[in-house]
Design a protein around this nucleic acid. Sequence first.
DNA 1: CTAGAATCCGAACAATTACTCGCGTTTGTC
DNA 2: GACAAACGCGAGTAATTGTTCGGATTCTAG
Lengths: 216, 216
Amino acid sequence: MARTPAWTARRTPTQDRARATVDVILEAAAQVFAERGYAAGTSNRIAARAGVSVGSFYQYFPNKDAVLVALVERHLEAGMDSVQELLEAAAAKPGDLEGLLRSFVWAMLTLHEREPDLHRVLFEEAPHPAELHECVLRAEERLAHIWLSILSQLPGVSVRGSDTAAHLVVQLTEALTHRFVLHGIHELPSTAFVEEVVTLLKRYLMEPEAQPRGAP
Amino acid sequence: MARTPAWTARRTPTQDRARATVDVILEAAAQVFAERGYAAGTSNRIAARAGVSVGSFYQYFPNKDAVLVALVERHLEAGMDSVQELLEAAAAKPGDLEGLLRSFVWAMLTLHEREPDLHRVLFEEAPHPAELHECVLRAEERLAHIWLSILSQLPGVSVRGSDTAAHLVVQLTEALTHRFVLHGIHELPSTAFVEEVVTLLKRYLMEPEAQPRGAP
DNA sequence: CTAGAATCCGAACAATTACTCGCGTTTGTC
DNA sequence: GACAAACGCGAGTAATTGTTCGGATTCTAG
């Protein structure tokens, strides 16, 4: 087993037919992973589910892990695109930090609730090679960068350390929504969870003396 | 491969000799995992490193995953014990929320920095069967329970929702320290990280009107 | 239409690895 | 010291699974 070294694509498809094959393989892999778990996602089974032969599988994926990485990349990129769009739109009308935070947390929650089975397999059950983690880090970096620009033009936010703050906001929200969707917090409903996280973030980002209710 | 169904211990050791064998196997597994990654942790290699035969290995562990679960249980239990002790000690002298938070965050950070290679393999690289996640959830529940009692006897903390708050504090701290130790936040030093998380938690837990600098 | 490139196929191969079983050794008990 | 139970051993087995390869098929450019 495991004789091929890398997780890079073996042959890049040039014809539509080939691109369709790659797509159908990825889709099949997602189904198999979601339904039967990561261990059941053997190359032969994925190929069978996709309706193609193992040969075709290995023409585009050097090994099983490559499929995992490709799936995560796809999943992540789509999610980040939508959140980025939302953030940039909401950042256009300034002043409403709470509304922005609420949109953000809801978006992250929705992201995790889309295809939760697949999400669980991809990010919890499956082994995480280093390469996979870099994808996640890159995605977080992207969001943190946007948040940095938002924080910098926001009144009442300390400029010093706002790079750190941006990272904390992103990592914290990601981690908490992830756990909430997959394991829940007792019987806490989603709405209450979101409000609590929004409160948390708002109190963090507002300087204490800038708190609206703090001024007499 | 993988013909045995469960991850329960096969034979419980009664003699000291056997208990020593179990220990040496676990220790060897920890070394192999930390040094060469999860995939390299085959039963034969672990047994070899432990200086025992595969037969002995399978006398106490029905399969490879059982070792993983045992390691995580051990790792977690030791860590939780120390943090619980610290928390209960610090909670005895009330009033100093910030000091308590700082101790807590430092303790969590220290926990993650102890044997980081093993920690990375156990919690990132290795696959996470459902059973393993229950261990983590139980551990978190334990800490959340302590935090609940701390929060309830703390002035300036909203009693309503303090169960949720306790869970958030624990999950948030765990997730952030985990990520910080394993991947860092740019070049942020540990001290700055801890202070930022303490600030975050403090602002969250203190009612806005109770903020010391908020009062005129 | 046709050469050649791209794609597809799937039986067969190779390598790994989880796991067993029968036997020798040590420990505990009377 | 003798019997039984617990323990340790490790070559061997069986099954899974990743991966290849040579030929059939489909597309595309000229």
